[in-house]
Design a protein around this nucleic acid. Sequence first.
DNA 1: GCCGTGGCTTGCAACGTTGCAATCGATGCT
DNA 2: AGCATCGATTGCAACGTTGCAAGCCACGGC
Lengths: 339, 339
Amino acid sequence: MPATLREVAERAGVSVRTVSNVVNDFPQVAPETRAKVQRALDELGYQPNAVARTLRRGRSGLIALVLPELDVPYFAELTRAVIEQAAAAGYTVVVDQTDGDPVRERELVMRGSRAAMFDGLIFNPLALGDADLRDRPSSTPVVLLGERVVQGGLDHIMVDNVGAAELATRHLIELGRQRIAAIGDQSDESRRTGRLRTEGYQNALRAAGLEIVPELIRPTEFFHRADGAAAMADLLALPEPPDAVFCYNDLLALGALRTILSRGLRVPEDIALVGFDDIEDGRYSTPSLTTIRPDKTQIAKHAVQLLLNRLDGDQSPPAELPADYDLAIRESTTGKPTH
Amino acid sequence: MPATLREVAERAGVSVRTVSNVVNDFPQVAPETRAKVQRALDELGYQPNAVARTLRRGRSGLIALVLPELDVPYFAELTRAVIEQAAAAGYTVVVDQTDGDPVRERELVMRGSRAAMFDGLIFNPLALGDADLRDRPSSTPVVLLGERVVQGGLDHIMVDNVGAAELATRHLIELGRQRIAAIGDQSDESRRTGRLRTEGYQNALRAAGLEIVPELIRPTEFFHRADGAAAMADLLALPEPPDAVFCYNDLLALGALRTILSRGLRVPEDIALVGFDDIEDGRYSTPSLTTIRPDKTQIAKHAVQLLLNRLDGDQSPPAELPADYDLAIRESTTGKPTH
DNA sequence: GCCGTGGCTTGCAACGTTGCAATCGATGCT
DNA sequence: AGCATCGATTGCAACGTTGCAAGCCACGGC
């Protein structure tokens, strides 16, 4: 049973308030009183009750990061960045995983019940959209990541998916590839990412005067390795397989890579590959993966900064910040070792 | 500003207590009163204040999972399992990352300040040891994961590292390999994992009558891909390079794999590889990775169960549960495709 | 008609903390 | 000497909720 202020006060022979003053380093405490109280604190091993303190102060010092899947490396790496940024500002981050389940997303983000423990939320939605988020009853500030919501009334950070996909595809075109496939399209209305990247892919083809071949655009249910492996198998089964593939994330690309290599084909000689996210796995695969590299540190920095501004009472209209990105060119398109 | 019970009570013309009764579904409420209160609740969009509720009830419904690194796939995958198990019991998991920093570990686990928000902790320590943990002032129950602590007075779940390492090494021996290296030894007193796995590795060699060659046992600072890549480069630079390597986790193995392949050597023909953890990356690398497969679901299940028991007031002596494991044999030792 | 019973509702207090304002004694200034 | 001032300490109330026990009212039985 942890000691309370009252117990410490009794032991030190002072009032509860004075103990609180010592604990919080208020200057107006006589040195000998401070010493006496400090001794009592130490003897009882006092630890402030975070819940009571939060109730009273209205601040917990915790911010929640709500993500679809923690075991997707992109999110794991982003999480690291967010934790670092928040720690620098004196905040502790707790992470929760929704699996893109609308029920869980709603419970965590919409209802005050659980969310109210946190001063703010950084949320990467999969299932929840515009409409859901707009009339959030809770007043806890939220910063959105990712591309799901078009125009919410909320702060929002995202990469230009169309532009990035265009850049990736253009790179393949400049290598002289003619039949360029895409893996990761999503017809599902609620999953926006795939559609935006398909848009960029098509823009690049069109600009280069290349034909858009529907059968080269492979939808996948998720963005996992297994999906990439299966989609690649389908592409290889075509009468005329592609000579390059743009995968909508690195996991898809790694799955595709596995399929290609297991058929005895070579990357990039037979098929060039580009991914998206720049996860560490892609830097250590053989061949290493050419990929779109979003600036995760910047995303995290902006997200935390926007949130802290809101916590400081910033009332300015919701911001929509673009995140930087570039193309990391590695062996899967050039064949040249990168180390 | 979220509505409070009092505001709802005023609007509905009943007492605060009655509103609370409605919110908590107490049976003794007259139907028409319930309807009246419900209307007021809806109109005001009432959401219970989780902090106040926690203070009063003494339970938050949150458990914390404290891990060294979230972007290490093993931990990310374990996290998923823990979240699933806890959700089944009605608990929400929040995750925090320590980077193995003793200061952060202490702050999160030892001090009540932040920890007190949570009903319990599942903690995989890197830096904190026996001595530190023994006199924890907080009374929040803790379950430990991993091998750092030998005999704490706390519940603990771990794999038999010595036995597992022996199994992995024996597999390489049975393939007829003669010069078997090990990557991931750790001289650092505080990091126990590496030393235990070296012990198992040596046991297996000794049992087979093979010589223990010190220069084939490579220490690494961390267990990341880069460490594995560097250690492998060192091994290849030896006058007599190994024909097999046991890596103390899959990331080390993937780094080593990258180095081997980039030198034009083949796996497993020239060098066979075994890893540890069975992360998804290893199932999709080329060749796929033979590895020790700890039962992560079981670990998570036991951890959550032990914690819930303690929360229910279980006073039995601390449990020390072993986690099951086996060897997943894949292409990096057999050469045979696994799909 | 009185009392017991049971259904429903309520007031009070408390969880542990901190903001506010008041208090107290001592010091310094005129 | 008297008064303002200042430093140090304190009591009260409140954050929003729920446990406890008492209260109220109506009804039924004797």
